[in-house]
Design a protein around this nucleic acid. Sequence first.
DNA 1: TCTGGGGTCCTAGGACCC
DNA 2: TCTGGGGTCCTAGGACCC
Length: 292
Amino acid sequence: MSLDEAFVDLTGCEKLHGPILKTAKKIRNEIRDRLGLNASIGIAKNKLMAKIASVYCKPNGMLWIAPGKEQQFLAPLPIKRIPGIGPKGCARLNRMGVKSVADLSHLSLELLEETYGKWGASLYRKARGISSSEVNAETEDPRSISRETTFSKDSIDPLFLASTLSYLTEKTAAQLRSNGLFATTVTLKLRCSEFKTVTRSQTLGYPTAADHTLLKTATILFRKLFNHRVLVRLIGISFSSLTAHPYQQEDFFDLKDGERWDQLYQGIDQIRKKYGFRSILRAASSGNARRK
DNA sequence: TCTGGGGTCCTAGGACCC
DNA sequence: TCTGGGGTCCTAGGACCC
């Protein structure tokens, strides 16, 4: 699920590993012995309940929610214990008088769906401990890849901002290539000193992982957003609509050119693998890199 | 409780096509 | 030429998670 969290489906593993609780204990002991780290384990009949259980018994705990006892366990909990209910959602529900999961479970599906749309429908199910999300061992390709940076001091210097953008773009594009992916949509993000955040995005005619194409687009978006008057606190770049299969219809007479770009970036990636990312940078990126 | 960096998913409006 | 409905894609923003 993340760097330090995972789901395991132990359905049908009793013959191999013994009772589930014993297996969980073994996992926890092994993590402690081999890594010297504490871990919490939630055991339940689906991912939603297992997650809630593991958070509930933090730190270093273990909690089993017996099948059929889901509602009973959830009822007294505050709604913020339900994954997907954050500060905003919690406040909205509170205003309706909904504080506990029991309160939530008294609301009808129709009302929740009418008031909150898809989110409401999902709350109806979650309040009852219902979830059909499967444990999936396959790692899927990411939906987006991004880099952003917050400056130690807000900046209005266009050259500095442009070189930071160039550097972040190079960094993100390199990750794109190392994942064997190509991006179709480029999104630029700026946050001003008053914390207002704005984004501008553009979808290209074809997927690419080439620095020069991505940077050209990022620069156009930056010019659209940056007005030279407001101090910038954060700048970020994101690539999305990713695909592993570029179908790029090359210009018939331009085929050679595309190949040469590919070779260039492969060369750059190899140099960086050997000598580090900063061993070779675009000139435009160096204004930022030198400062670090 | 806030900040920062990396993600996901959803919504809503507009353009465009049939 | 205009109207309407349905669908898809793009864009911008926001909530949430770790």
